[in-house]
Simulated assay, not measured.
Amino acid sequence: MNILSIQSSVAYGHVGNSAAVFPLQRLGFGVWPVITVHFSNHTGYGQWRGPVLPAADIADVIAGIEERGVLPSCDAVLSGYMGDVSLGEVITDAVSKVKAVNPQAVYCCDPVMGDVGRGFFVRPGLPEFIRDRAVPLADIITPNQFELEFLTGRTIATLADALSAAKAALALGPRLVVVTSLMREDAPADTIEMLAVQEDGAWLLETPLLPLSVSGAGDATSALFLAHYLRDRSPASALEKTANSIFAVLERTAAEGAREIQLIPAQEEIAHPPSRFRARAVERQDASASAVG
């Protein structure tokens, strides 16, 4: 299977395509990485160097791929941080071209806009573009809790809130919503959760909350979920495999006191996800219901 991944890139560390490409390749996927920026390191360090590629240049790269006649063999498009609306338009145009020649292709949109505690960290106009243009085109979206709240205009404090917001997000166009980091008031203490919701079911998985703050984990999460979903089309299975691999990466990162996620040292856990954490089905109509599977 082949995935067109349009994201940022860094020479040192793991964010954007630098967090997504290796895990996808380790799982056996062909990846066509299109980079939107090429920085020395991620911006969380406060200092970085490198170019932001103009939208026209990125479109030119995609046009070159199209000219090879390979778009019909593209099984999925993955996008993350968009930078600005002009780049967003290049991405949505690429998705439309892929779907025109392969209607079965899946678009996974990580609607990177902001986070709880930080608020928005993207340029004005981009959140609205993502909500109104990118999300309706997507088959899968992977928002964090803050992003899901913006997309749906809802506040999330409980599991019932999260399920209701995810259902509202489905109404925007995607067929599957994956909340990558859910921290609700009615969850067990010191845990963080992932939630996958589609029209006919919802699945929740919790892991311990590790004492670290790193960049790139969300980018790797979106890539891994897309990969596992493409294989068996099971949201529950994809959720379990993704969460178990990512927790293993983060657990190793915390143990080593590293600032960058430890993708390479944890590559065996990426290629062969452990079975430590299990997803449980939750009732969409009653979030307080017990597990049903």
Rank of each mutant, 00 (worst) to 15 (best):
V10R: 03
V15G: 07
V15M: 07
S18K: 12
F29P: 00
G30E: 06
V31M: 04
T43L: 15
G44I: 14
Y45F: 15
Q47K: 14
R49S: 15
D60G: 08
V61Y: 14
P72G: 04
A76Q: 11
A76C: 12
A76I: 12
L78Y: 13
S79I: 09
G80V: 06
G80S: 03
G83C: 12
E89G: 05
V95P: 07
S96I: 02
V98G: 01
Y107I: 06
P111Q: 08
M113W: 09
V116F: 03
R118Y: 04
R118H: 11
R123T: 15
V135Q: 07
G153Q: 10
A160H: 12
A162V: 04
A162L: 06
A168P: 00
L170D: 13
T180H: 11
A189Q: 10
L195D: 02
L205M: 07
E206C: 02
E206S: 15
S215W: 00
D219Y: 13
L224R: 01
Y229P: 07
Y229N: 04
R231N: 09
A238E: 13
K241C: 07
N244C: 05
S245M: 08
I246E: 06
T253R: 01
A254Y: 03
G257S: 04
R259Y: 10
E260Y: 05
Q262K: 11
A266T: 14
H272I: 13
R284K: 15
D286S: 07
A289S: 15
A291I: 00
V292R: 10
